[in-house]
């Protein structure tokens, strides 16, 4: 279980300070929790704060009751937090197999790596020895990113817009990736998404707007309102 208590984040923006998150509190205790909200509302910032990449200027983070606010990225990863980046990182020289092995924390056999790649819809043979460099397309890179967190399959996994750039291999397969992952880990999966079909599988939906939690409730409570206000005037507030 993950708990965020009164998280605030202020970024130094030139000479001025920019408040990006303001008093965000939420709990992730269900299998699937979705965060949604307008572009620039602070969702990825929140994901980075959970992973330890950014340090909140206010508030505390608890993982299974332990205060992890002061822990490094590495320590959090070792306690079971995984984070699939919105914009995956490219590496000159590291191959897909290297990266997935590092994620798994051990040397994987070719067939194990292939297993993860086919789960994300990549024909493994074509990718296993490729470098994770600029020659991969955006969608390929995104799938490999998802494969890295699959290979970890730990207690809490944060996906930052996993659907972005992914074609019609599609939502159904992506959703089955989440479901298999949950079946394996019995952990919690936090998905940042703009897609109705992903929000549809969430046990809970949190709406972030302007750096604050605007709504937080079960899917049944939150989704109808989101769909009704499709053009989102409500979200802008």
């Amino acid at each position: 279980m993950l708990e965020l208590r009164h998280i605030g984040f202020v970024a130094a923006d030139g000479d001025a300070n920019k408040e990006i998150l303001d008093d965000v509190s939420l709990t992730v205790n269900e299998p699937f929790v979705a965060i949604t909200g307008p572009n620039g509302s602070g969702k990825s910032t929140l994901a980075k704060i959970i992973a330890g990449i950014l340090t909140p200027t206010e508030g505390k983070i608890f993982l299974d009751g332990e205060d992890i606010t002061g822990l490094s990225v590495t320590e959090r990863a070792r306690r079971g937090i995984s984070y699939a980046f919105q914009q995956p990182v490219r590496f000159k020289g590291l191959t897909v197999k290297d990266l997935i092995s590092l994620a798994a924390g051990k040397k994987l056999t070719v067939s194990e790596v292939c297993g993860f790649l086919s789960e994300v819809g990549l024909c493994a043979r074509d990718y296993i020895d490729r470098e994770v460099n600029a020659s991969l397309s955006g969608g390929e890179l995104k799938r490999i990113e998802i494969a890295t967190v699959l290979a970890r399959s730990k207690g809490l996994t944060v996906f930052d817009e996993p659907e972005a750039g992914i074609d019609l291999w599609s939502f159904q397969s992506l959703i089955s990736v989440f479901e298999k992952m949950h079946a394996r880990t019995k952990g919690n999966i936090l998905i940042i998404s703009h897609q109705e079909r992903i929000l549809n599988i969430a046990d809970r939906i949190v709406v972030i707007a302007g750096g604050r939690v605007q709504k937080d409730g079960t899917r049944e409570e939150v989704l109808p309102g989101l769909l009704a206000g499709r053009m989102c005037p409500a979200l802008q507030g």
Partner: peptide
Amino acid sequence: IAGEQLLKLMTLGLTEQEAEEQIIKGFLS
């Protein structure tokens, strides 16, 4: 070494130094 490369590998559980070593090893392999 790009900071985000180090961070990505750290989110996989590597220390900063281990991440650095892996990035260099890959780069020169």
